[in-house]
Amino acid sequence: MQVRFESVHKTYRRRDGIEVPALAGVDLAVASSEFVSLVGPSGCGKSTLLLIAAGLIPPSSGRVVFEGDAGGRPRTAVVFQEFALFPWRTVLDNVAFGLEVRGVGRAERLERAAALVRQVGLSGFESRYPYELSGGMRQRVGIARALCVDPAVLLMDEPLSALDAQTRQLLQEDILRLWEATRKTVLYVTHNIQEAVFLSDRVVVMSRRPGRVREVLPVPFPRPRTEALLADPEFGRFCHRIWSSLKEEARAALEETHGDGSPA
């Protein structure tokens, strides 16, 4: 499934009536089975773009076009930074939630959920509740829950930001492995440039708010990738190249924030 953002604008209207432009004309095409990362200064509208793609909020103007045969599958599923697991459901019931609300019978959905729980390495934890799990395990549940509905496009909003560095590294590799197994179209938001480069086919650098696409960089490293890539000097140079692009925007965003006193 291919996703095309065509001149997507979004302006939030706050409760006090003030309009906050978050996105100002995003044009971007994500090819079928492509893994694309979005990086950009804080507050530039990355989450907004993902929510629009997920159909959770409408764009103010412009449109998002999904092209390709979904084969009856849901278009999108989202993995959230704060996991957003249902605390009163067990791991298995969290993962099965999407199938449950779509009317899939109990036996079938639990079987499919169990297979995903296994795939993300949580065998044995099926009947635990989220509060009994570590952050890394919780996000594995979040990923399994999104994959369980077999979405055509997977949207991930800083899925690893709430985790410590080591857990993060492990989960990056798991995400890579899962993606290689499923070849889903993925749109992945992160603040971590290494992570973006390590995972992606292309990295999209967004401008400061209101967000636009500033630059799109194809990642030159072949797949399958391993941890060894992280030690490659070429990898470091490429990350640095993205950081230089991002730095100008981030600095300008920071100065604007201090300038007019409005929150980022």
Binding site: V78, F97, A146
Partner: peptide, 9 residues
């Protein structure tokens, strides 16, 4: 949001 994104009515 999570529920809606997973298809809940």
């Amino acid at each position: 949001r999570a529920a809606v994104s997973l298809g809940a009515s």
